[in-house]
């Protein structure tokens, strides 16, 4: 079994499977979960349902895009470092091809009035979609008063100040640790 897993053929299958997952995913990491359940758990038995949830949980609490984190996890588990790399390349490959095609066409027509009007309409929609996403993520992210404060402070500061988000991320992580140590968490 091990021999099969590290073979070129298996690496190609990892790449192909995750490319398929990439093509079928629209939007963010959460949109990928049902597709992973079918492709990875039910069809290929590369991970159990529980393992997948574990990868997801860790993928959420490690830096980086959840979709990439989960792909790296499963690939690494099945075929080591080469497997992790192939699964990750697989999941990003469709994006690279499709987006490059669209972007190369779109940049030629960006100034056409029809395209400008279309995107002015689309921006309104994006605004509503972002609002909906924030509402949906709220319950999982803001769990107590301290969480609400962190949300509000970060929101206001980043609207009014020109500071890199990196700074907020680092300070928020440290604040989370301090608040937990002080026993403020959950109140």
């Amino acid at each position: 079994m091990n021999e099969e897993r590290t073979s070129i053929g298996f690496l190609a299958r990892l790449f192909g499977t995750f490319a398929k997952v990439g093509v079928m995913t629209f939007g963010g990491g959460y949109a990928m979960l049902p597709i992973l359940q079918r492709e990875i758990v039910e069809d290929r038995h590369w991970a159990t349902e529980e393992e997948l949830m574990d990868y997801y949980a860790v993928g959420q609490c490690t830096p980086g895009i959840i979709a990439v984190n989960t792909a790296t996890f499963i690939g690494q588990k099945k075929a080591g470092i080469a497997g992790g790399i192939m699964a990750t390349l697989g999941v990003v490959f469709p994006s690279i091809v499709i987006i490059l095609l669209i972007a190369s066409v779109l940049t030629h027509f960006a100034d056409a009035p029809v395209v400008r009007h279309a995107f002015a309409g689309i921006r309104v929609c994006v605004c509503v979609l972002v609002f909906n996403a924030v509402v949906k993520l709220w319950k999982g992210a803001v769990k107590d008063k301290a969480g609400l404060c962190i949300f509000a402070v970060v929101f206001l500061l980043s609207v009014f100040l020109d500071v890199s988000p990196v700074v907020y991320v680092i300070i928020a992580a440290v604040t989370g640790i301090l608040l937990t140590q002080m026993g403020v968490r959950g109140k």
């Binding site: 924030v134 999982g140 803001v142 962190i150 949300f151 907020y168 991320v169 604040t175 608040l179 968490r185």
Partner: peptide, 21 residues
């Protein structure tokens, strides 16, 4: 504990980006 602080921060950043749009 770090992620307890990070999640509302990440959401605050997204909301601020939403405000720009």
């Amino acid at each position: 504990a770090g992620f307890y602080g990070l999640r509302p921060c990440s959401l605050g950043l997204i909301a601020a980006a939403g405000y720009l749009i």
